[in-house]
Structure formats: C-alpha cells, structure tokens
Computed example of a mutant assay.
Amino acid sequence: MRFSSTGRGARLARRLAVQQFTEWTGLPYDADPARAVALVTAELASNAVRHGSLPGRDFRLTLHLLPDRFRVEVTDSRPERLPPPVTARPADETSGRGLLLVEAYADDWGSTVRDAYTKTVWAEVLLPTTGA
C-alpha cells in the first residue's frame, strides 16, 4: 500500500501494519510481537518520510506473513540514502536513535536497493512458537 510522505502517512502505515499483523496471526494488539511490529513500522515509515522522500513521491509499505516471522518492508524514493550503521548514541542526543530501536525490537533488518529509483528497508519480527 502507498502512503503520503507525511507524518500522517507514517502513522497510518503503523496502524495498518499492526491491524494486519493481528488479523493474520490472531495475536492481540498488546502482545509483544504486535508492539514490536508497531515500533519497527513507525521507525521505518518515519525514516522514509524524513530521509527518503522527494517532493510528490509516496512511500510504500509491504507486509509479509512468513511461516515463522512477520516482515515489514518500507520502500522510498532515495536509493542513495542507505541507513547508516547502527551505533550507540550519547544520552544527551535527541534524535538518531530510531535504528537502534529497530535493531533492538526486530529479529533481523536491513536494506535493499533493487533499482536506480527506490530502496527498501525491511525488518522481521519472529512469531511466537506454539508448544506441542
């Protein structure tokens, strides 16, 4: 689904991702994996708006339910702006910690450039296993 590269678009993307996650998995909104999906989607969408947008270009949210994980992909229009390496930040800095949160809450994440016009930043959250 496409969203406007605005704060409202990022909020809608987060809400859609959690809604779809709960529908597909049957887990409640307040389950830890749902919270992780909300957080990583919010950060990836916010980064797409802040660092990956060009005037008049939207970002795209793609969701995948895999056998053991839920994958969130956010595609924006700035392939030359790859996410920087994640490093600890001093406590007095007020921005730049979003990818630290993604690193902490996602079980895996990364970025892919497939063409000269877009990049996709993705994160995966493992699904709880059911004991037999």
Results as ranks from 00 to 15, higher is better:
V125Y: 00
A13G: 05
D30S: 13
V102S: 09
R71S: 09
P28F: 05
R81G: 00
A132K: 05
P85I: 02
L12V: 02
R8E: 15
L66T: 06
R89D: 04
S111H: 15
P33F: 04
V102I: 14
D115F: 08
L65N: 09
V40T: 11
T75V: 10
G56C: 08
P55G: 10
P85D: 12
R114L: 14
R11Y: 07
D107V: 07
E43Q: 10
R57M: 12
Y105A: 14
H51S: 06
T120D: 10
F3Y: 15
P28M: 01
L100H: 11
S46R: 05
E73S: 11
A38I: 01
S53N: 08
D115K: 03
R114N: 13
L99Y: 15
T118C: 07
E73V: 03
Q19E: 13
T130Y: 01
P67N: 07
A45M: 01
D32S: 10
A123H: 00
G52W: 02
H64M: 06
G9Y: 04
A38M: 07
G56W: 04
A104Y: 10
T87R: 13
A116L: 12
R14E: 14
A48S: 11
E80A: 12
E93T: 13
T25K: 01
D32N: 06
P84F: 03
T6S: 15
L27V: 06
T62F: 03
A88Q: 12
D107A: 12
S53I: 00
R114V: 11
A106H: 07
R15F: 10
E43M: 05
R89S: 12
A31N: 08
L126Q: 06
M1W: 02
S111V: 14
L61Q: 02
G9M: 03
S4R: 09
G9A: 06
T94R: 12
T120F: 07
D92M: 04
T75H: 05
V74T: 02
G52P: 07
P84H: 09
V18A: 08
R60L: 14
P33S: 02
D58C: 05
V49D: 06
R57P: 00
P67I: 06
V74A: 01
L100R: 11
D30M: 07
S95T: 14
D107G: 15
E124M: 03
G98R: 05
P28T: 12
D32Q: 10
P83R: 01
R35Y: 01
R97M: 13
W24C: 04
L39E: 08
R57L: 10
D115S: 12
V49P: 05
T62A: 14
R50T: 12
D32A: 12
S46E: 11
L126A: 13
F3W: 05
R2K: 13
